[in-house]
Amino acid sequence: MPGEGEIEVVKIIGALLIMLATTWTGFDASRRLTERTRQLRLFKNALLSLEAEIMYGHTPLHEASRRLARQLPEPLSSFFSAFANKLVNTETTVKQAWDDCLQSLEKRAAFKQGELEIMRQFGETLGRHDKTSQQKHIQLTITHLEREEADATEKQQKYGKMVKSLGFLSGLLIVILLI
């Protein structure tokens, strides 16, 4: 038979675990908002580099995306290196390879459906046109991504702090209700 003191200790440990879980959930949600902004900015920079490689370096697509993979941090780095590998090693179209890589990126990155759709549409134009119209498509995609980035920044500023304190306070509420 456990004593009175032991029950108190178990209660306190349980309360701490609940607080920890909800607080961590809040911080994780806030981190995802921050990550979305950062990754959108990185992807925009990647497109700018791609444009420079195509316009001034005349680099083939697989070589350009391998260079991008070396420049960029995760998770975009593995996206571009997977894309380069697919282009070189498998018998596939650019669009197919881009779509496949986007699907695996979707699981690891914090992108939402809107920007994924923009990227998918960009993949359809990739490697199909001459230099100048490819550049125009890149510029168009960057404009679209800038709109999404503004949206992501606004959401981050609005909800970033809220989800943190919401996680902590909901944990506190659950603990008080259960005592």
Binding site: Y159, M162, L166, L169, L172, L173
Partner: peptide, 21 residues
């Protein structure tokens, strides 16, 4: 004490949710 605790936490939640619209 329990009522006071619930009151404080609910008041905080109300303020935060109100601030973000």
């Amino acid at each position: 004490f329990k009522i006071a605790g619930v009151g404080i936490v609910v008041a905080f939640l109300h303020t935060i949710l109100d601030q973000v619209g």
